[in-house]
């Protein structure tokens, strides 16, 4: 078994304009590694929504993408305020983002549901006042890569 490929990116929490840059880089890297379009799209969209969330809600953090033999794992870790009610946060249309963020086209309560939609597994570990870690997995189909 070959060593997994790991990409790590700091997410700048103070710059909405540059948010998503890490997801674009991951997309390019996965394409270069020869993954099918569908897998590349699912990983990058899920990570992009997560990256935007980290900027909107959590002052940034760290994104780590591990490319294993049969799955790609995305771990988004922040030291933000945490999510008090994870189950509620997962409901489509439930949002806590302020109007100025919604005016930028995000924060409509679709981010977490979209992350779940595009991944095969998703887990949220959150402690209020300490931070949140979101772990997502996308399985690589056998004929892929």
């Amino acid at each position: 078994m070959s060593e997994p490929v790991v990409f790590t990116y700091p997410i700048d929490g103070n710059n909405f304009t540059s948010a998503g840059g890490a997801s674009v880089a991951v997309k390019q890297n996965l394409r270069a590694l020869g993954f099918p379009d569908d897998v590349v799209r699912r990983v990058s969209i899920a990570m992009y929504e997560g990256e935007i969330n980290m900027v909107i809600h959590a002052h940034g953090g760290t994104a780590t993408v591990t490319v294993g033999e049969d799955e790609i794992t995305i771990v988004l870790a922040d030291r933000g305020p945490g999510i008090a009610d994870v189950e509620r946060a997962m409901q489509e249309g439930y949002y806590t983002a302020p109007d100025n963020i919604r005016a930028l086209g995000f924060g409509a309560g679709m981010g977490l549901p979209n992350m779940r939609r595009y991944t095969d597994e998703m887990r949220i570990d959150s402690v209020v006042g300490t931070g949140t870690t979101v772990t997502m997995k996308v399985r690589i189909p056998e004929e892929g890569a």
């Binding site: 909405f16 997801s23 992009y48």
Partner: peptide
């Protein structure tokens, strides 16, 4: 909507 996230969204969606 006019901000760079519009372009990144389009990129993510191919």
């Amino acid at each position: 909507l006019v901000n760079p996230q519009v372009v990144r969204t389009a990129m993510m969606m191919d």
